[in-house]
């Protein structure tokens, strides 16, 4: 009876659709082709695209890659979380890059626009500098979209399983998973300590000096508490066979299809081709 009821449970759907941590880096459930790819494939292709973007000589290549990647994440229905971060990081980056490189890039020659400014006469933006700024910007855009796209379409559990199936040790996979949850845990621990200290009269809103003092008052119990927690956790992990050698099984199946293998090979070939082409250009 009980066995019947257990096997009715679709563990995969249950884990996939569970409520998450509400962070921006959180997995968004879905069933698009991008979601279904093996996580390792997504990682390999992302890294390949980043390498290609950093190898290409002008900004048109990275721009085209960014647009293509954006279309891909839009098709996967995760454009919103990805764009939120890309815009939040990219906008100040774009402004500072264009201003600084446009004005001061050492190879600046061709004036793009010039403004008359009192005292220093005129302020000129140069084509070379702006193009260089765009090159850096779109290289970073490729990096952000590719990695964020991978993160938000991959359940962390599946990523760790895929990595372990490719031979990554379970300790490294654990560190990856635990790191995702470590920050919210530390935050809530810190909040509890701060509340307790404020209740006993610690002033956390005053000038810099007393704030520094309160910082010390926070860090000591936070670190000691974390160390004690680590001891308990180490014992709990040990008791659940964490360091056991031998075969492991996984709660979820993470398929590695022919499409995955093809994509990974194509990604490697593309990197080799682009690097080869650039080297050939240098030699010629």
């Amino acid at each position: 009876m009980s066995a019947d009821r257990s096997t009715e449970i679709d563990v995969e759907a249950l884990i996939e659709n569970a409520d998450g941590s509400e962070s921006v880096f959180e997995y968004r459930p879905g069933s698009t082709p991008l979601h279904r790819l093996n996580p390792v494939t997504k990682l390999v292709v992302s890294v390949a695209l980043v390498l290609i973007a950093f190898t290409l000589p002008d900004f048109w290549g990275p721009l085209a890659l960014s647009v293509a990647l954006l279309a891909l994440v839009a098709l996967a229905g995760v454009a919103k979380p990805v764009l939120t971060i890309v815009l939040a990081v990219g906008t100040p980056l774009a402004l500072s890059l264009v201003i600084i490189q446009g004005l001061f890039y050492p190879e600046n020659q061709t004036v793009l626009v010039a403004f008359g400014v009192p005292v220093i006469d005129q302020l000129a933006f140069y084509v070379e500098g702006v193009e260089f700024a765009l090159l850096i910007l779109f290289r970073l855009t490729v990096l952000m979209i590719a990695l964020l796209g991978t993160i938000v379409t991959t359940h962390p559990k599946k990523l760790t399983i895929a990595l372990m199936e490719k031979g990554v040790s379970n300790k490294i996979a654990y560190v990856f998973m635990a790191a995702l949850q470590f920050i919210p845990q530390m935050q809530s621990r810190a909040r509890a300590i701060l509340d307790a200290q404020q209740a006993r009269g610690l002033d956390t809103t005053a000038n810099l000096r007393s704030r520094l003092r309160s910082y010390v008052a926070l860090m000591a119990p936070l670190l000691i508490g974390t160390l004690i927690a680590t001891e308990t956790r180490a014992l709990a992990l040990e008791s659940r066979g964490f360091t056991r050698k031998g075969e492991r099984t996984y709660l979820l199946d993470v398929p590695d299809t022919r499409l995955d293998r093809t994509l990974r090979w194509l990604a490697v070939l593309a990197v080799v081709a682009v690097v080869g082409w650039r080297l050939w250009g240098v030699v010629a």
């Binding site: 569970a18 654990y174 998973m177 635990a178 949850q181 845990q185 308990t232 014992l235 099984t249 709660l251």
Partner: peptide, 24 residues
């Protein structure tokens, strides 16, 4: 709280953690 693995997104993963290590 300290004795949970800190590496699971759902309760079932947490409970299954040891059994995965046993290779069942």
């Amino acid at each position: 709280f300290d004795q949970l693995t800190g590496a699971s997104t759902t309760v079932i993963e947490e409970v299954a953690f040891g059994l995965e290590n046993l290779g069942l």
